[in-house]
Each structure stands twice: as C-alpha cells, then as structure tokens.
Amino acid sequence: MANKRVISLHSVAKQYGNETVVRDLSLSVQAGECVVLVGHNGAGKTTLMKLMLGLTRPTSGKVEVLAGNPALRTAVAQRKALGYLPESVAFYEAMTGREVLTFYARLKSVANTQTEKLLQLVGLGAAAQRRVATYSKGMRQRLGLAQALLGEPRLLFLDEPTTGLDPSLRQDFYQLIDAMHQKGVTSLISSHALNEVEARASRFVIMKAGTMVACGSLDELYAQAALPAQVRISVTPGQTTRVAERLGTAVNIAELNHQSLSLWCSNGEKMPLIRRISELGEVVCDIQITPPRLDEVYKYFMRGDSAS
C-alpha cells in the first residue's frame, strides 16, 4: 500500500448481548506510530484490541489490520507480524519459561537462537528452567513481553503492559519498547497511567464507556481541552492588590496574598498577559508559568463536560 496505514477502523461498534462495549469508533494508525489507549477499566480498550487482533468480530463497522480483516482465515498468516501482550497474561503453568517461549516460537516459526536471546533480553535467563507456576507477577509480565517480541513483529499490541511491575522494571520495559520503536515498529499500548507513557506516545486515544472522547497528540489534546495555564507572579511585598488592579478586571485571579498572586490564563491570552506584566516594571520580581498537567487534561476529557 502506498500510504503506510497499518490499522484502520471505520465506525466500529461491538455489543455483547445488550451491552455496548465499543460504539462508533473510527481510527487509523500509520506505520511507526505509538498510539496509547487511555481510559478507565471497562472503557473498551481491551475489546478494541481484541477486535484488531481478530479475536472478536465487530457488531457493525469495518476493522482492517495490515490491509486485511483480522477475523478472516486469510489473516492467519499475517499474525506472524503481530505481537500481543494481553492484560494479566496467562501461561501454561506446568511448563518452564523456556518451554513456553519455545512453544510459541515454533508456532511463529522462529529459530531457537532468538528464543534464548529474548530470554536474556527480558532478564529471565536464570529463571528459564523454572516452571511458570513459580514465577512472580513481574516475571510473567516479562515472559509475556518476550513472547510478544518473538519473530520481530511489525505491530505490537500491549494491554496494560506495566501493571504489577516495580518502577525499575518499568524503566527497563519502556527502554525495550523504545528500542522497538527505533526499528520502526508500530505499537498500540493501553494504559491507566498517563504520565508514564506521555513521552512515548505519538498519539493518545482517550476512551470513555466505549466511545472515543478525544484523539490526538499531546499538544492537540492540550489545545482541545483549552485548559488554562497557571501564572504566578511574585511582587514587592504589599503590592499585590495594586498589581491586580493594574492588570485589569479581565484576568482570573485564583489566589492573592501578601507578596504573590496567581492567576489562570488561557493559551491565547498568555503572551498579552506577559507583556502587560513586564510593563509593570520593578514591582514584579518573578513569574512562573505552569502549563496544565497531563492528568488534568485527562480528567477534563473524562468529565466530558466541555463547558468547564
């Protein structure tokens, strides 16, 4: 295909019985992107992944992954190019870590040398001889990542990949993902934790009760949410009221005390405000501008009332 579109969803909906889990969702993902699905539990993130993996079929709409319907028999061969790490991954408990990985490697026609390399890569080299039943949550998650990376997939689906991992393991985990991205792998990651994935995502898809409430890069989301930045001005002690008066009634003052005042300021008003502040002269000692935090943006979309 000329355009390197890897995933495209056209007004996809999925119902289980009477319950609508995904409604009218359209999304397209280009090769090399890292798209992060964010939303509460039950927002439909896992179902969306299952739809893209061909594990379930949409009630209506069209799903295309690597230029084919993933639920068709013809898509079976192209699963070699996919890697999937399910949420709370389960393995055959009686098998050792190495046996599990070798089993999956054979299904993907991957050489044993790669299996060993992956075991080392995720740090399970020493535990490879132990039965999976004895593994901790973190070790299972690492084995899960190892199987997802088998056969150097072009497209990765990671469903809450870092739950149960301690902070240092998380770091390792994201380093691995970053390394995959350098190679041009496309990935779809679902997560609760926005801050953690912030730096990696090329795009966020925010989901709420089966609907996509927002989609875009970090900057686009900030712009969409139009949340005000906080500007904090330190002034010569006792001058705060005068400064507030001189800034005019248009500004939205949040807090005022003896020697500082902080105010809310939308993106468009920011530069004019700063110019006005600088015109105040010596009275102003310092300015601090704090842009809205990512979780505030997230909260904004989760509330869903665009009026605020």
């Binding site: 993996l53 594990l55 996919l82 709370s88 389960a90 299904l107 199987q147």
Partner: peptide, 14 residues
C-alpha cells in the same frame, strides 16, 4: 478459563 487460549489464537494458527 485460564486465559491461555486468548494468546494462542493470536498466533498464526487457525
């Protein structure tokens, strides 16, 4: 029930 089928069916097997 254990959840292993989910993963198995994302592999290139019918």
């Amino acid at each position: 029930e254990r959840g292993t089928m989910l993963l198995l069916l994302t592999y290139p097997v019918t």
